[in-house]
Design a binder for these strands. Structure first.
Lengths: 316, 316
DNA sequence: TCATCTATCGATCAAATGATCGTATGCGGT
DNA sequence: ACCGCATACGATCATTTGATCGATAGATGA
């Protein structure tokens, strides 16, 4: 095995010249007295033996590692992880919004008519607000979640509204509360032609950008009075850890069947199995919920922050 | 300057994908939403800003760094640094010989007639002894240093002898002591037709492989009785720290003019200004001598070990 | 000793990379 | 507001890199 040692020596030399010295393989070949393919084999050996350690000296490097791990593990089309600003917690939210806006604008910028669907939540709102104005009247934007609160007031600043305002595109809002008061109300809503028309548009969307909700006392669903405290307790009792479009799910990503589920008016998740859903969510509290959504295989894309990403990779 | 931060962020991302992730630049370009040349600029920026740290996980890496530094600093054609075997001091000598033999055999292996000149010293001897046998009767080997001791005995195992034996090439030995007894003896020697003929051959050599001598109580010149103790003291008094081919020189690489110099019979160093001289020497004791030879600009190539190399770079 | 097998090596080609150039875009000054 | 400058961007080409294939040399066993 002494022969192998010599090979490794040469491999290390070649690796040094190539990576540190920036020498071309031709040059290395003549320096080492081997053929160029020989140098390639040496470099391959060096890589294989783990002789070469590359370190990117920038905070973003950790994010990239996390992003790559998550993308691999859950077969995502993409995963962006933005740095967590330890000093300014809102900084991370801003980063998240910018990163999300980047992904959205990629789609919106193009000239062909585009249909995009949006969920609700702070992250989605912040994301569309980060977008710059661009004239795209040919685009259509549709909301996947009802934007009417229990008291009947309509959220004037839904993401779809902002996006349509910024682009001049068409808007399609779901004229319903997130959770209907009764099963009958839900059925009645779903029979409205308007509701069905919007459903149809949503099905034609090329991508869906949605938030991820956590299920606890800080849950948006609860804080915004879409569900009552008793209903929250019921969800917690059924092991719900997060929600997508108002659909609560367990840690494994299965949608929880319960009294609330039967009254959720959002479009059923199964409907989007073949559509790319992109989640926009960050913060350590959202970690378990995002992980659940990933486990359920609902997502094709994810824009998150370092805190949530770290939680996710630690609980694969 | 916030703009610059964003650029650096992207540069770090691109660098991560390229170096750690092994993604192609085309892929990175589409992931980052820029053109491929844009990615190149980002990578160039990342390199320039020192974001990318490559570490070769092998003892040889340190040697390569030293070698590169020395080659750069003194404009050498090449510099090989072999690892110092902390456990076995003779191991390093063996490595040195193998590394030197590698350089020599590059030249010897070729079929065109070759003229090679050799100095004396343990390193040169060990080097030629490491060479494998190869039939090259068309080659010529010439010694640059007299191989006759003060007592008149001839060193039967001069490097030239060994090399000629191994290749079947012609041998040209300098029939003189390294240091003549008197200036007159030197003059007389130099007038011999044989001496002049050999000088002529030496001038036709394509490369010279020589040792480097230190000037102290362990000096080969002194140990082998080429100079007396009084002469050694004289050299030390004149700040000589090393010698090439018997020519003592100061730390700056200037040849010392003194009573000994006038009696040295080796071919004058100036004669080789346009010839590639390669020094073979290692060990911490040889450090100052090698550094002097480098400072004098006498060398075009160097094969040394980690100990000497470290001394050299620390005393640039 | 010969045959065969395997491992290694170098020629060739496709892909990826780096560099140069012309062009566009934005910014500051007049 | 317009002009000029500077900076940055993207198309194109040369170089470098990676991979595949056939060939050759050495090893191993019959």
């Amino acid at each position: 095995m002494d022969k192998f040692e010599v090979k490794l020596d040469q491999a290390a030399r070649a690796a040094w010249m190539s990576y540190v010295g920036g020498i071309t393989q031709d040059e290395i070949a003549s320096q080492l007295g081997v053929s160029r393919p020989g140098v390639q084999r040496l470099l391959a050996l060096a890589r294989q033996e783990g002789l070469i350690k590359v370190h990117i000296d920038h905070p973003i490097a950790a994010c990239m590692t996390l992003a790559s791990a998550i993308r691999e593990r859950f077969g995502l089309d993409y995963c962006d992880v933005v740095p967590a600003e330890a000093s300014a917690p809102e900084g991370a939210a801003y980063y998240l919004a910018v990163a999300g806006a980047e992904r959205v604008s990629r789609l919106v910028e193009r000239s062909d008519p585009l249909t995009l669907s949006l969920g609700t939540g702070r992250s989605v709102r912040a994301t569309v607000e980060s977008l710059s104005r661009i004239e795209r009247p040919q685009h259509r934007f549709v909301s996947l979640v009802g934007n009417v609160a229990r008291d009947g007031s309509s959220n004037r600043y839904d993401g779809v509204m902002v996006l349509a305002d910024k682009t001049g595109g068409q808007r399609f809002l779901l004229p319903s509360p997130v959770v209907a008061s009764t099963v009958e109300e839900k059925a009645s809503l779903q029979q409205q032609p308007l509701f069905q028309a919007i459903t149809q548009v949503a099905l034609e969307a090329e991508a869906a950008f949605i938030g991820v909700g956590q299920i606890d006392r800080q849950a948006t669903l609860f804080q915004d009075h879409f569900i009552s405290e008793a209903e929250l307790d019921e969800l917690l009792g059924r092991q719900a850890v997060g929600e997508l479009l108002g659909w609560p799910m367990t840690a494994d990503g299965d949608v929880v069947e319960c009294s609330i589920t039967r009254r959720v008016t959002s479009l059923p998740l199964e409907m989007f199995r073949d559509q790319p859903i992109v989640a926009l969510a960050g913060g350590v509290a959202k970690g378990p919920a995002i992980l659940a959504a990933l486990r359920g295989g609902w997502l094709k894309g994810l824009v998150t922050d370092q805190l949530a990403a770290r939680h996710i990779v630690e609980h694969f």
